[in-house]
């Protein structure tokens, strides 16, 4: 299987690794897991005017999961929440040439984006911050 340099780069030098404080008003946090292998992924977005201005991730899992979440944080940055909601795991698979055994890693990344956005919206709509 041929991998683009970009992919290996994502895996070896992940972008946007780290955390925001999840208490912050304009931060949405998504924590998801893959029971296939026990991987855990946290993806956070910082939102201004319905637009994602920054993102962070922390992934405890295999290289594919790390690359998938790293790519996801790059992709959501600059997108509106609605645009970010349309990101599909298949696009991640394609971009990273993920082998079938690792497709669940891309599903994880897609879920993480959606969960983070939902968390942010809940904060905005609702009573107060929290999960």
């Amino acid at each position: 299987m041929a991998y683009s340099d970009k992919v290996i780069d994502h895996y070896k030098n992940p972008r946007n690794a780290g955390s925001f404080s999840k208490e912050e008003e304009n931060v949405g946090t998504g924590v998801v897991g893959a029971p296939e292998c026990g991987d855990v992924m946290k993806l956070q977005i910082k939102v201004e005017n319905e637009r994602i201005v920054d993102a962070r991730f922390k992934t405890f899992g295999c290289g594919s999961a790390i690359a998938s979440s790293s790519l996801a944080t790059e992709w959501v940055k600059g997108k509106t929440l609605d645009e970010a909601m349309t990101i599909q795991n298949t696009e991640i698979v394609k971009e990273l040439s993920l082998p079938p055994v690792k497709i669940h890693c891309s599903v994880l990344a897609e879920d993480a984006i959606k969960t983070a956005i939902a968390d942010y919206r809940k904060k905005q709509d609702g009573s107060s911050g929290g999960e």
Partner: peptide, 8 residues
């Protein structure tokens, strides 16, 4: 061989 030279 899977992503980034990892072994599956």
């Amino acid at each position: 061989e899977t992503l980034g030279g990892t072994f599956s």
